[in-house]
């Protein structure tokens, strides 16, 4: 297929699994953990980051031959900060409640290491179209971790999904209790550790030699 050569396909699909930004490249952990106590903000965050990474990648890729090497970090930060400001204003206008829940973490997309990592590693050396796909791929790779963590934390922590109750009332009547521990921040990081555990059990070549 002309639209997706094997290289662009790798750029799009690699980050979903073997090259995942969060659990393999260890990028963008900060926000991945703080916004996942409910499913809804996790999904909004995933979409925002995907859009910002994709478009920042395209812009930097278009500019890559004109940016002087010495000041590229500042240029990258300005491009990213502009995109994040747009996302943040859109969220304030159309999803005010979610924006409140995300608080400073929308702004912190600027310093999300995924962005700098992808801009440095990919967009500076590739054309706009592969860079766009790379951005989408990395955004989604980041997103699915967020959504998995958010799913389990909301399900076990408050018995709801997207605000709707999913654990039947009969359970509560029989003595089932929500696990309040899941709402606490440390549990997010434990859940990511579990994802890493499962992922590396399946993909043995990713296991590390030293502690």
């Amino acid at each position: 297929m002309a639209l997706l050569s094997s290289k662009t396909k790798a750029a799009l699909l690699g980050p979903l699994n073997k090259n995942n930004p969060v659990i393999v490249q260890v990028l963008g952990i900060c926000s991945a953990l703080a916004v996942t106590s409910k499913l809804e903000p996790a999904i909004v965050m995933a979409i925002s980051v995907t859009l910002v990474v994709a478009f920042a990648n395209v812009i930097i890729s278009l500019l890559r031959n004109t940016i002087p090497n010495r000041i590229r970090i500042i240029v990258q930060l300005v491009v990213v900060a502009t995109l994040v400001t747009i996302v943040s204003e859109v969220l304030k206008a159309f999803a005010y409640d979610v924006n409140k829940q995300l608080s400073v973490f929308v702004g912190l997309i600027v310093t999300n290491c995924i962005l700098m990592g992808r801009l440095e590693a990919f967009a500076l050396g590739n054309g706009p179209w592969p860079s766009f796909l790379d951005g989408i791929g990395n955004g989604l790779g980041y997103g699915w971790i967020l959504i998995v963590v958010g799913f389990f934390r909301e399900l076990l922590g408050s018995g709801t999904l997207m605000g709707h109750q999913v654990i039947p009332q009969a359970f509560y009547d029989a003595g089932y209790q929500d696990n309040g521990l899941m709402m606490l921040a440390p549990m997010a990081i434990l859940l990511v550790a579990c994802i890493i555990w499962v992922h590396r059990t399946v993909n043995k070549e990713l296991q590390e030699e030293t502690n």
Partner: peptide, 29 residues
């Protein structure tokens, strides 16, 4: 200190670091 402990293979490196961070965070709570 972790150099000397026997960590399950899939957890080596990144995984165990995450778990320790989580436990430290629980402590700080």
């Amino acid at each position: 200190k972790l150099e000397y402990s026997n960590v399950p293979k899939p957890l080596k490196g990144l995984g165990i670091t995450f778990i320790i961070t989580a436990l430290m965070a629980l402590g700080f709570m």
